[in-house]
Nucleic acid binder design. Sequence first.
DNA 1: CGCGAGATTGATGGTAATCAACGAACGTGG
DNA 2: CCACGTTCGTTGATTACCATCAATCTCGCG
Lengths: 249, 249
Amino acid sequence: MTFVNYSASIAQSKGRAPIRAEDTAALRGLRLFDGIAEATFADLIAAGYLQFFPPGVTLIRERDPADFLHVVIEGTVELYAGSGGRETTMEFIRPVGAFILAAVLSDQIYLQSARTLTRARILMIPAERVRHWMAQDAGFMRMIVAELARGYRQAIKALKNQKLRTGAERLANWLITQSALQGTPGYVDLDIEKRVLAARLGMTPENLSRALASLAIHGVHSRGALIEIKDPAALAGFAKPDPLVDAPE
Amino acid sequence: MTFVNYSASIAQSKGRAPIRAEDTAALRGLRLFDGIAEATFADLIAAGYLQFFPPGVTLIRERDPADFLHVVIEGTVELYAGSGGRETTMEFIRPVGAFILAAVLSDQIYLQSARTLTRARILMIPAERVRHWMAQDAGFMRMIVAELARGYRQAIKALKNQKLRTGAERLANWLITQSALQGTPGYVDLDIEKRVLAARLGMTPENLSRALASLAIHGVHSRGALIEIKDPAALAGFAKPDPLVDAPE
DNA sequence: CGCGAGATTGATGGTAATCAACGAACGTGG
DNA sequence: CCACGTTCGTTGATTACCATCAATCTCGCG
């Protein structure tokens, strides 16, 4: 895949498109806006922007002050972070998911950067409006608390995954989880590049290659982006899956 | 230190001591209860328990349903987690800190276990009361949101620390941070066992020993629980500290 | 003084990062 | 439509990092 070298500044210029009426109804249906007051929703939408981004666009950069709450409506967004010259993938956000809510709420800087992996439709709401309505609308705040708690538990699970398992084990468990999520027992279809998956799993691309090869003795075989799990029981025996680590929140 | 083999069940038996009047005033002063209504506070306190635990007591166990919100008033509590036969330390909680708020709010099971490292005074509030008042008292909910956001960002930082650094780097940065927190430039006083610190830093005790020895060329020397940082600038040069990873939230 | 838990040191093997080379897939331009 | 070039993925060789097992050391405490 060739990434367009595209600046996110287009999204933060005066050229942003406000949300059109035909989109409003669809947004109102999001679980994210469930139980919030009509006035809250109307104002959030009026202040917000909804637009498409091509793949490879950097949406936010760690260290920047949190100015918008971002919600992924379509496509895949990668959260990543770096320090001391190294870089790693933290999480993937898919519809419908908000990201970096915590920074917005506490009016702090972002701890993570975000870029689109695919063409993606993103809803952006000014941070100030989010904080404003959180204080006014108890229903909205309840939604925020739920989303925060979800993200927090997700992060704890990611930390356990990283500290308690080897690379091959993380891969094996990821395969098991993905196979279930995609509803295709016996198969996993990679919808991201292997290099990106490697970073997500906390390893190098070379190592992912080798880890995948090493799972062959547990019945895992790959042909390009399609990975076959011949013997789910054997793979599980090696992976030792644990809902307190693997289950998505 | 010898840990008492003490069951936490004493805390969950009928023998719990309600909170005495003389303690109420002190609790009211906690930042945790700042801005919440008097009625909320009174009911939380009336339903809660405040008591001392000896060192080594398991307060909660991962996988158990969240029944109490725990707040550390005095002493140190270790959050830890295990999977597939391995175990690691996730975080230390010191006064005044709540732990595992997310599980309480979403009425889910704990992802982490907790045990006292020192004699500790813990405030326990029934989870149901917390959820009840969160919905009633906007001020209380604001406090909860702030605490959740703090924990979330803390977890993200821990994940970055683990994925982006080697063991020796994590140790070096921990020394720099501790030295600042303790207000003793040039020194760090270990108030926990090295084996526990090792788990916290994601390494074995043997490895911590070697990592500490390897920092000697950067001016770090240890005599028992006292660690001297002879040349903070040199150590920082090696550690490459980063507020987006190291700064406590 | 002697015991025991924690800390250290050494030896070894496993796990993972890095550097380098090669092969496969795909898009572009001729 | 093919040739080429770029990017991604794989494989191999080497080194760094880390866990494990075992032995020794230290120190507080009975």
